[in-house]
């Protein structure tokens, strides 16, 4: 008996841990949003009826889309140069991307607090060169949140895409060149389409990461630029509105899962190497 089910026994502790401490609690959180008075969808009706909460949802989507788009372009161009760099330089460039990635979210967001603050480095610099006469308020704007989020996710994008670009077979690129394509033509018509599945994976990571972020919007957006993560915390720990917080949690889960599933489907369909 023991031998026959050895695989099950070995996988059981980890499976049970995920079941008991992840699936059940998250399911319970989502379930509490459906048991309310005033109809099964009452908390959701309340969420979407509140102009403020709708604004927060749209702001979060806007910030996440902007972060994803900028990170994609910056990450892809940089990854292209990194993947084409000679050996030693390439390892150095990879190390320089890994370092910020492994340094925590709080540290990296805090850095932008020093840079963008009213008496921050950027304001002092701009005043000292005479570009502006009064310090600008750059903190607690949508822009400051997006800059810090892009800073957070560009290293991840570079590393994901370097891996993808390295996997593009050299002979495909050479074939394109020997058939007369210009380097720019090869880039557009061969490398870019082959990188699409990787770009989608990167985009999903960045979008879901920004959509559910807490520390960065809290530090650089504060109360003025509330997003889903900070609103959820405020609902739960300041207003003690647990149903409201659970509703936000459920919306986050639904959007995350939908984006992941839809995009992985699209990635499979767009993969030119798939048969």
């Amino acid at each position: 008996m023991l031998k026959r089910y050895a695989g099950w026994w070995l996988a059981a502790p980890a499976t049970l841990a995920v079941l008991v401490f992840l699936i059940l609690p998250v399911a319970a959180t989502i379930a509490t949003t459906f048991g309310e008075d005033g109809g099964i969808f009452a908390p959701y009706v309340a969420f979407f009826n509140s102009g403020f909460r709708r604004t927060v949802l749209w702001r979060t989507i806007e910030i996440s889309l902007a972060t994803t788009a900028i990170s994609l372009v910056v990450g892809f161009l940089t990854a292209y140069v990194v993947s084409k760099s000679p050996g030693k330089l390439k390892s150095l460039l990879i190390i320089a991307a890994v370092f910020p990635l492994l340094t925590g979210v709080v540290v990296r967001s805090f850095a932008w607090l020093i840079i963008l603050g009213k008496n921050g480095i950027l304001n002092n610099f701009l005043v000292s060169i005479g570009a502006i006469s009064e310090p600008l308020s750059m903190l607690y704007t949508q822009g400051s949140v997006i800059v810090a989020m892009v800073y957070l996710f560009v290293p991840l994008m570079i590393l994901t895409l370097v891996g993808v670009l390295e996997n593009i077979p050299d002979d495909v690129v050479q074939a394109s060149a020997s058939l007369g394509a210009t380097p720019a033509g090869t880039f557009r018509q061969v490398i870019l389409p082959l990188a699409v599945p990787g770009l989608i994976v990167g985009a999903v990571l960045v979008f879901t990461g920004s959509f559910t972020a807490y520390a960065t919007p809290q530090l650089l957006g504060g109360e003025r630029q509330m997003v889903m993560g900070t609103l959820m915390y405020q609902r739960a720990m300041v207003s003690f509105d647990w149903v409201g917080a659970s509703t936000i949690a459920a919306i986050m889960v639904v959007i995350t899962v939908t984006v992941v599933l839809a995009m992985s489907r699209i990635a499979r369909r767009l993969n030119p190497m798939a048969t």
């Binding site: 992840l22 959820m232 659970s246």
Partner: peptide, 19 residues
């Protein structure tokens, strides 16, 4: 074992607090 990645961390934290 992929599920913990699909569930936003902040949702995991909140759910563990409650349950």
């Amino acid at each position: 074992f992929v599920l913990p990645i699909l569930v936003p961390e902040i949702v995991l934290g909140f759910s563990l607090l409650k349950s």
